[in-house]
Amino acid sequence: MTAPILTVTNLQKSFLLHVLGGKRVVALKGVSFTIPQGAFVGVIGPSGGGKSSLLKCLYRTYLPTGGSLDYLTANGAQIDLAAASDDAILDLREQELGYVSQFLRPAPRVTAVDLVARPLISRGVAQPEAREQATALLLRLSLPADLLDGYPVLFSGGEQQRVNIARALIAPPRLLLLDEPTSALDATNQETVLTLLQEIHAQGTTIIGTFHDLAVVRRLTDHYLQIRHGELTDAGPTATLVVAALSLTH
């Protein structure tokens, strides 16, 4: 058996809010789990339970308060994402770590096509070729053709979300973190995104995603983690989730 791509040990995250007189908000109270290489893991649980905090700790947008996040890199090195230097994290983000949030704010005054083409260009693809691929992907996600050269800042929530997804999937990372990637999409667009996710998973990307829709979790993922009140309350192969879901009375 190959080594897990990610080993999370006793991950804790709390926020000390000085502006609120030193109030402490606890988001994660010591979460441990491992993720096998190539897995598609669904993170489930009620809103405010810590799902997004978990993903943000893995991407280092949040600084973990305690615990370790041991990540196995493409060239076989172990990096603790909680303790690695900022430069090491930036390198990983550039090379193998991707993140799509439900709220990512697009850069202003960059067209949709250029925004999506950028990850390809930074991996050495020539600009015309990168723009062509970006255009194809955005059209596949049914972004209206006349918006391709528009600024995503001015798009609707669902259109922005599709641009974000296209940007993350155009050059699939080795580990992809998804925070409610289909929350603002209608049924047809959600279907397209789910199919795309299955495709890049089949190509070898390990995916950890939060989904509020258990049907999506059952359809896409092979493992699940349930996070409630900052604790890991359940985990296992998704095949067993039918039973587990019954106890998921939020």
């Binding site: 926020f15 000390l16 000085h18 502006v19 943000k56 280092r60 947008t61 949040y62 930036l90």
Partner: peptide
């Protein structure tokens, strides 16, 4: 820190302000 971390999870009281 990383810019997104500074903006989303500021640690120092002054940064939070």
């Amino acid at each position: 820190g990383l810019t997104d971390q500074i903006l989303e999870d500021p640690q120092h009281p002054y940064t939070q302000l």
